[in-house]
C-alpha cells in the first residue's frame, strides 16, 4: 500500500516527530514497504476470531488502597531538564 506524504505528515504530527521534506519522502517509502509487508495479514481469515491483546489468561489483579512511600520532591525533579524548587518547568503552552 502506498503511503502519501500527507499521511506521513499527519502521523508525524500525532506522534510529535518533526520531519524534514527529505525525511517525509524517505519515511513514506519505508513505511510503504513495511505496510505492504504487513498487508499479508489480509490473507488470513479472521472472522469471529477474538482479538488477543494479551498472552495471559489472568484477570482482576488489584492492590489494597494503602499508601506506599514514594519519591521525595528532590528525587522527582532530579532527572528533569528544567525545574525550580517546586515544579517541573516547560516552555509556554500557548503560542506567543
Amino acid at each position: 500500500m502506498p503511503i502519501t506524504s500527507s499521511q506521513v505528515r499527519k502521523v508525524a504530527q500525532l506522534a510529535r516527530l518533526e520531519l524534514t521534506e527529505d525525511e517525509v519522502q524517505l519515511v513514506s517509502d519505508q513505511l510503504a514497504s513495511i505496510v505492504t509487508f504487513v498487508d499479508q495479514l489480509g490473507e488470513v481469515a479472521t472472522d469471529g476470531v477474538e482479538p488477543m491483546a494479551h498472552p495471559l489468561d489472568i484477570h482482576t489483579v488489584v492492590r489494597p488502597d494503602t499508601e506506599v512511600p514514594g519519591l521525595s520532591r528532590e528525587q522527582a525533579l532530579s532527572n528533569s531538564p528544567n525545574h525550580n524548587d517546586e515544579c517541573f518547568l516547560v516552555p509556554p503552552v500557548m503560542a506567543r
Binding site: V11, A12, L14, A15, V38, L41, T46, V49, M52
Partner: peptide
C-alpha cells in the same frame, strides 16, 4: 513509532491493529 501510530490511528485500527490481534490468537 510512526508505524505504530499509523496502525492505531483512526481509519486503520481495524485493518492493522485489530487484525494483528486476531492473527495473534490464531
Amino acid at each position: 513509532i510512526m508505524l505504530g501510530t499509523f496502525a492505531l490511528s483512526a481509519g486503520y485500527y481495524d485493518a492493522y491493529y485489530k487484525k494483528a490481534l486476531q492473527v495473534r490468537r490464531l
